[in-house]
Write a protein that binds this DNA or RNA. Sequence first.
DNA 1: TTAGGGTTAG
Length: 789
Amino acid sequence: MFTLALTASTPGTGTGMATGSVILVPRAYAFSPFEAKPHSTEILNSPAFSPLKARPANTGFNSYPGHNAQDPNSKTTHSSMVYCNSDSDQNPLFNDWPQLLQISIGSGDLMLGQAIHAFLAKLGYQNDAFRGNNLVNLYGKFNKLGDAQSVFDEMLVRNTITWTTLIKGHLQVNDVESVFRIAREMYWVGEEFNEHTCSVILQACDSLENLVRGEQIHGFVIKRGFDEDVFVGTSLISMYSRCGDLGAAEKVYSNLAYKDVRCLNFMISEYGKAGCGEKAIGVFLHLLGSGLEPNDYTFTNVISACNGDIDVEVLRVLHGMCIKCGCGDEISVGNAIVSVYVKHGMLEEAEKSFCGMGERNLVSWTALLSGYVKNGNGKKALEGFSQILELGVGFDSCCFATLLDGCSECKNLGLGLQIHGFVVKLGYVHDVSVGTALIDLYAKCRKLRSARLVFHSLLDKNIVSFNAILSGYIGADEEDAMALFSQLRLADIKPDSVTFARLLSLSADQACLVKGKCLHAYIIKTGFEANPSVGNAVITMYAKCGSIGDACQLFYSMNYLDSISWNAVISAYALHGQGRKALILFEEMKKEEFVPDEITILSVLQACSYSGLLEEGFCLFNDMESKYGIKPEIEHFACMVDLLGRAGYLSEAMSFINRSPFSGSPLLWRTLVHVCKLHGDLNFGQIASKHLLDLAPEEAGSYILVSNLYAGGGMLNEAARVRTVMNDLKVSKEAGSSWIEIDNKVHQFVASDKDHPESKEIYAKLDLLKSEMKQNMIYNRTPADMSPM
DNA sequence: TTAGGGTTAG
C-alpha cells in the first residue's frame, strides 16, 4: 500500500521519476491543462508527463503547509493531498479520478481538478463523453465557463449530459441568454432533451419576461411525458411562482403524482412567500399525513409562512414540533422562529428564542433588531449595533438597512451619519436597500439635500427608493416631486400604490385640484383606482382640494370600502362644514358593520366642532371608551376644547383642560388661545396664553398666535411686547406661504412678497377687496390684522 | 460512471 498525493503548485516540485510512495502531478498539468497537448507524442512519451509511468520524487511534498506526511489521517491535510489505496499495479488515478474530481469540487480545490484535467487530457478525453462531461461539470461548478466551453469544444463525442452540464454552468452565473442560446444549439444539432435538461432550462425562466419561454418548455415537458418527474415538477412550480403565477404553480403541484419532501418543502415556501400561510400549513399537514419525515427546511419554511393571520397557538405547536423532531437547533429554523415572533409583534418570545439559540449568525441578529424597529424601539435596535461590532459577525446590506431604519425610527441622525460612513467604507453604498434606508433617514430628519444625493448616487433605483425620496419631498418642494415622477416614468419604473398615495397626498396638501385630477386620470388608466389605499387617497385629495362632490361620487362608486374609506369621506364632510352629513355617514358606517377607529371618532368630533353640534360631540366623546373601546387621546381632547370654545363656552373649555390628563400639554392651551382669538376674548385668552408660553417657550407659532390675540383685541402694545420677547429669545418662524394655481402654474406668495411680476396689480386688487369687505361689514378687524406678519 | 429541484433578515 502506498500513498498518492496530488499537489499542484509547491515551488521546486521535481518532475523526476518516482522514488518513493508519493506521486506528484507535475506543475505543467496542474496549471495548464489546455496546454498539455495530449496528442503530442513528445509529451506522451515523456516520463514527466506520463502519470501511468511516472513515479516522481516527493521533493517538496513535506514543505506543503500544514501537511503531515507520516500521518495520512491528519486533519490538517490540505485538500490537494488525496490519499487512496493502490494495491493494484495500476496508477490509482486511473480508477479514482471521478471521486477525486468530486473531492476537488466539494472542497473548492480547483487546482486538484486542473491536475485531473491534465491527467484526463493525456488519456485523450475527446473520445470519451464520460471524461469530458466530468470536466465540463468541474469548470462549470467553479464558474470557469470559458474553460468548460474549451473542454466542450474539444470533445469529439457529446451527449445530452454534456449539453445539460454546460447549460447548468451558465445558469450558475446567471447568464440566462447563454442558457437559451446553448439550448437552441442543442435543439438544432438534434441532441435529445431529457428531464435533467428541462429542469435546468426552466430555472432560467425565473422572471415575468421569460414566462413565455417557460410555458413553451412546459408544453414540451408534457409532450414528452416529463411532467411526472418530481424534479421537473418542482422546477415548474418554482418557475411559475417566480413569474408571479401562483395559480399555475398550484396546478403543477396538484397534478404531480409523486411528491417528495423537497418538493413539498418548496411548495410550503412558495405559499409562505405569497402570504398564503394557511395553504402552507395545509401542505405541511399533507407531508405529515403522507408519512414523510419533515426536515429542517420543512420547519424553516412552514414557520416562516406563519403570517399575521395565523393563530399564535399554531405557531407555538409548530415551534414545539420542530424541537421534538430534532430540528430546533438548526440556525435557519431558529432564525425563522425569531422572525415569525417578530412578525406577530411578540417581541418577548422573539427575544427568548433568540437567547435560546445555540448558534447565531448575522441573520438572527438582524431578525431581532428589525423586531425592535418595527415595534417602535429604534433605540434598542441601535444598541445591537455595538454588539454586532463587538461580536465580529460582520455586516451585510440587510443588516445595514435595518440599523438605518432604527436610526429613522428614533430620528438619530448622528448615529445614522456614522453608519453611513461605515456603509461607504464597507462598499455597500450603492446597494439599493441600504440606499433606500439612507434616503428614508435623511427625509425623516428633513435633510432633503442628503436624501437627494443618496438617491441620485443609486445605480439601480427601484420604486421603493423612489417612494422614499418622494416622502422627503412632501411638505418641501412640490415641483421637484412632480419632476421626479416624470423621470420615473421615463426610466420605465412602474409606480405602485404607495407612489400614488404619496403623490395624491402631495396634491391634497397643496390643494392643487388640477394636478390631483391629472393623477386621478393616470390612476384610472393604470388600474390603481381599485387599490383601497389609492382610492382612499383620491377621496381625501378631492376633499382637501375643495371638491366634496367628486370625493363623494368616488366613495359611492368604490367596489371595495374599508374603515379608512369611511374615515376619508366623514373627514371630507367635516372639512366642508357639513357636520350633519358627517354624522349620518357615521351612522351608516356602523350599520354596514365597519368598526370605527380613533381616526373615525376624531373626524366626527371635528365635524361636530366645525358645525357647532355641541351635544352630539359630547355624547360621542363620552361614549368613546364604553361604546367603541377607544381611549381618548390628546387629539380628541383638543377637539373637545375646540368644540366648547367655538360654541362660546370658554370657561367650560378651560375647566375641561384642567380636568383632562393632558393639562400640561401646549396643544390644548394653543387650541384655547385660538378659540379665544376667534371670539376676541382677552380674559380667558390671557390666561390661556400664559399657560401656552410657559409650556412651549421655544415655539415661534405660540408667540405669533398670542400676539395676534392681543392685536385682535386692540392691545397693540401688548402684541408688540410679545413679538419683542420672541425676538429676544431668538425664536424665529419660517415665513408662511400661500399659493394659487392658475393655468397649470402654481403661484406662491410669502408675507410682504413683492417678487411676483404682477405684484403691483395683485396688491391693488387686494386693497380693493379690503375696502369692499369693509363696506359690507364683513371685514371688522383692527388694522393690525391687515399688516403682514 | 457523469448532468436536475429548496431555507432565514429587508
